[in-house]
C-alpha cells in the first residue's frame, strides 16, 4: 500500500495550564490516502474541529506528529509553511467567509493573489474555476448579492482555484437548505471522484457522512470508531 497523503500519529492537543487545562485531543492516529473522501464526525466539543485545524497545519499539536506526503510537518515554518498551505489545501467553511463588498471573481482568486500569481493569469484561472461551478455569469457581481447556494459554490470555486490536493470542508452544508445542500454535496463528491481531490469533511450531519468513503467518529478527543462505507 502507498504512503498516506496526510497522516496523524498520536496527536494530542491541550489548551491552558494547571486546573484550567483542557485536553481537546487525547491521542488520535489517522491515515488519509490520496483520492479518499473522509468524514470526521462528532458533536460540538468532541475535538473534531481541533483535529481539522491540526491536519490543515493551522495549529501545532502539543505532542504527536502530522505527516504530509510522508514527511513530518513539524519542520515547516514561516514562509514554507504558508506556501505549503496555500498550494496543498483548499478550504470550504460553513460561514462562507466571502468579502461582501468585493466581486465574486476577486473573492475566488484570493488564494492565487496570496500565491503571488500575476493578475492576468489570476483572472483566467478564476473564470475557469467559476465555469466549473456554473457561476461564471456572476463573476462581476458583488459577493453579498449571491444566494446561499451560490455563495457556497463561490467558496468551492475559491477552494479549487489553486488546484489543491486536499479540500477541507467544515460543515459545508450547515447554512444551506436541504435541496441546495444536496447540490453542494454533489459538487464536492464530483470533484473527489472526477479529479481525485482528497476530501476531508468535518460534520455532525450523519446523511452527509454516509456519502463519504470512510467515517471517523470522534468523542471527547479520541477516535471511537472508524467505518468504511457500507456497500449499497
Amino acid at each position: 500500500m502507498s504512503h498516506p497523503i496526510l497522516a496523524a500519529y498520536d496527536l494530542k492537543k491541550s489548551y491552558g495550564r494547571g486546573p484550567n487545562r483542557f485536553d481537546a485531543l487525547k491521542g488520535v492516529t489517522l491515515e488519509i490516502f490520496a483520492g479518499e473522501s473522509v468524514a470526521i464526525v462528532g458533536k460540538s466539543g468532541s475535538g473534531k474541529s481541533t483535529l481539522m485545524h491540526l491536519l490543515a497545519l493551522l495549529d501545532k499539536p502539543s505532542t504527536g506528529s502530522v505527516e504530509l506526503g510522508g514527511s513530518d510537518t513539524a519542520t515547516l515554518k514561516g514562509k514554507r509553511l504558508n506556501e505549503t498551505r496555500n498550494k496543498t489545501f483548499g478550504f470550504v467553511f460553513q460561514q462562507f467567509f466571502l468579502t461582501p463588498g468585493a466581486s465574486v471573481l476577486e473573492n475566488v482568486v484570493l488564494p492565487l493573489k496570496i500565491a503571488g500569481i500575476a493578475s492576468r493569469s489570476r483572472k483566467l484561472r478564476g473564470h475557469a474555476a467559476l465555469e466549473r461551478l456554473e457561476l461564471d455569469d456572476k463573476a462581476r457581481s458583488k459577493a453579498n448579492a449571491l444566494s446561499g447556494g451560490q455563495k457556497q459554490r463561490a467558496v468551492i470555486a475559491r477552494a479549487l482555484v489553486n488546484d489543491p490536493r486536499i479540500i477541507f470542508a467544515d460543515e459545508p452544508t450547515g447554512n444551506l437548505d436541504s435541496a441546495t445542500g444536496a447540490i453542494v454535496e454533489d459538487i464536492l463528491f464530483g470533484l473527489n471522484r472526477e479529479q481525485g481531490i482528497t476530501l476531508i469533511i468535518v460534520t455532525h450531519d450523519e446523511d452527509l457522512a454516509e456519502r463519504c468513503d470512510r467515517r471517523v467518529y470522534i468523542r471527547d478527543g479520541l477516535v471511537v470508531s472508524e467505518e468504511a462505507r457500507v456497500a449499497a
Binding site: 490543515a56 504558508n82 505549503t84 498551505r85 478550504f91 460561514q95 468579502t99
Partner: peptide, 13 residues
C-alpha cells in the same frame, strides 16, 4: 477579523 483569518489560513504571511 475573519477575512484576515482566512487570508492567513490560505497561506498569507
Amino acid at each position: 477579523t475573519r477575512e484576515i483569518g482566512l487570508m492567513k489560513a490560505m497561506g498569507m504571511g
